[in-house]
């Protein structure tokens, strides 16, 4: 398989958030600022790459019937690693992301790739697939975070661009749904143009 294609599909053609609608809970929950979106995306990418790697390594050892619980244990292990590392080194980000760090375990993107890709492909392909899907997810979260931060507090990655009040609504929960809804419309328009 062409590895470049395998890597780049996660960004546009099979983007987890904009096309497959997977992993929506963290997408909406943590994107109050671009930096939170980026942090959450990178944490998920780490778990995705590592779980894809291990799943493709052990795919022939796991009996078919217990494969889903086995995948979940592998994923949960790496999530615990991420939890402990983030708590130790970036406590501020850990507090901001809160509940959504342990919830990477039930992120459908991670289990979805383990089941649909890593359990059927070679180690190298699975690594590339995990990195591509993970970075595509990170991109989506960062874009949504940047839009919400810009509209909601007039800042970009923490830099204040507009002085005075902004539309606070976009930082609050309803703004997450509205911003993602309109971004999806935009994604549809781009898709139409390109085809």
């Amino acid at each position: 398989m062409n590895q470049w294609k395998n890597f780049s599909k996660g960004f546009i053609k099979e983007n987890a958030v904009f096309v497959l609608f997977l992993g929506l809970c963290p997408t909406l929950g943590v994107t109050t600022s671009a930096i939170n979106g980026l942090g959450m995306g990178l944490a998920t990418t780490f778990v995705l790459v590592m779980s894809n790697l291990v799943v493709s390594l052990v795919k022939n050892l796991i009996p078919d019937k217990v494969r889903i619980p086995a995948f979940i244990v592998i994923i949960a292990t790496f999530v615990t690693v991420v939890e402990l590392v983030m708590k130790g080194y970036v406590p501020a980000l850990f507090d901001a992301l809160g509940l959504f760090i342990p919830l990477i375990v039930v992120n459908c993107v991670v289990l979805g790739r383990a089941e649909a890709f890593a359990s059927k492909n070679t180690i190298w392909s699975s690594l590339v697939d995990g990195a591509g899907m993970g970075l595509g997810f990170t991109m989506a979260l960062t874009v949504l975070g940047a839009v919400r931060e810009l509209l909601g507090s007039g800042a970009f990655f923490g830099m204040k661009l507009i002085s005075g009040d902004a539309m606070l609504l976009f930082i609050l929960p309803p703004g997450a749904f509205l911003a993602l809804g309109y971004l999806l419309v935009l994604a549809n328009m781009i898709k139409e143009k390109s085809s």
Partner: peptide
Amino acid sequence: RMKGVPIAFIVAGLMAL
């Protein structure tokens, strides 16, 4: 362009409001 999921999110946003 809004059919399906996009309009669903916008409705959910209004419900959240």
